[in-house]
Simulated assay, not measured.
Amino acid sequence: MLNPYLLLFLSIFFGMLLGNIKIKNFKLGTSGTLFSGLFFGWLFPHFVSSEKSFQNTFNIFFQFSLILFVTSIGLIASKEIKEILKKYGMKFLILSLTITFSGFLLTVTFILILKLNPYNLIGVFSGSLTSSPGLATALESVNHTSEVVFGYTVGYIPGVLAVIFSIYLIPSIFKIKISQQKKLPENKKEAKEKTFNLLSYSLVIAIGIIIGNIPLNLGFSTIKLGITGGLLISSLTLGSIGNIGKINFSFNTNLLKNIQNLGLVMFLSSIGLKSGYKVIENFNGYSLILMVISLIIALFSIFIGFFLGKYVFKLDWEILAGAITGGMTSTPGLGAALESTKSNLAVAGYGATYPFALLGMVVFNKILTLLTF
């Protein structure tokens, strides 16, 4: 009997099979679960779209898997984040704001040049950079909410795919030899630890959710960091502190990586299952144009970020890959960066740029809605 749990694990199974197919030096890896999720979401559109229990369950999968993934990567990166910020701090600020500004600038250009609904394009901007806070800012600032949401929905998948494929293909296109890049030394003592404290792990999550729901007043807008932002702050902060009294926040890295991978494949599959029927249902000539625009905006932002980080700031690819995905606020992209670089430096780069990128998306969405076209 068809149920959401069956669809989820079928998506994971076939997605992992798809991800292991290697063409020269390229393979999808865990990102294959996104495509299998899209396929099953398209194959069973009636169940996914009309059955309320299916949507509720997929939303639970989405939130729970996101919590596991983000908390684990934050705790893994927490030991290096101080050194990374000390060495690259301002570079990450500039990089993240440049990426989001590039997308904003191209969106304004498309609005001025093309005879398209500007509210659709405002939604496409947030979709291309996979930014829910950006979408929320736009929705609270305009009356044409359904038109903005439509643009976001259509633009989201091209935005995700652009980041994933770029992270895998950039090293091949620009002849970057990942194995020769610098890596931070591993903590051998930590590697020998075999503990996993569920009490501490749960506390990190609880604090992260509380932080993510605190409203931040920026003067022109009030935002929340959301689950991703809150969990990143709590896991990076508590993990770098190490312990509070008898509560220990040091975890075995291998165990965290297993939880991270489980969270990632569930996260990607649930995105595909939630979005597959929407992509097909909304597909027509006009939505195809919006999807192409989203893809162009995403690729433009990514490559501006890449050239700035690689040739101006001279960042190693491991950390730059994570910084680009953070600048694009793309959690699926981070999964691709981790898998392609095999380095936890990608997590540190993501954690350092993500908060600034969130701020950039809020500011630039606000400016978009204030402009009169």
Rank of each mutant, 00 (worst) to 15 (best):
M1Y: 05
M1V: 13
Y5D: 05
L6C: 07
L6A: 10
L8D: 11
G15Y: 09
G15N: 04
L17I: 14
L18P: 01
G19A: 05
N20V: 00
N25C: 05
L34N: 08
F44T: 04
S50Q: 15
S50H: 12
E51H: 10
K52Y: 12
K52R: 07
N56T: 12
S65P: 00
I67Y: 08
S72K: 12
S72P: 13
S72W: 05
S78A: 14
K82C: 02
S96A: 15
T98F: 13
S102R: 06
L106R: 03
L106W: 04
L114Y: 04
K115G: 01
N117F: 07
N120R: 06
G127R: 04
S128T: 01
T130Q: 02
A136H: 01
V142L: 11
H144Q: 15
H144I: 04
T145K: 15
V149W: 06
F150G: 01
G155F: 05
Y156C: 10
I170W: 02
S172A: 04
I178N: 07
I178V: 13
Q181F: 01
K182N: 09
P185Y: 02
P185S: 11
A191K: 14
K192Q: 14
N197C: 02
L203T: 09
I211W: 09
N213R: 00
L216V: 15
I223Y: 09
L236Y: 03
I241L: 11
G242K: 03
G242S: 05
N248T: 05
F249D: 02
F251L: 08
L256C: 08
Q260S: 04
M266K: 01
M266I: 14
G272E: 00
V279H: 03
I280A: 15
N284C: 07
S287F: 06
L288S: 10
L290W: 06
L290Y: 09
V292G: 02
V292S: 07
S294K: 13
I297R: 02
G309F: 04
V312Q: 05
K314S: 14
E318Y: 05
E318G: 02
T329L: 13
S330Y: 10
P332G: 14
L334K: 12
S340Y: 09
N344Q: 07
A346V: 03
A352I: 10
Y354E: 06
G360A: 14
I367T: 09
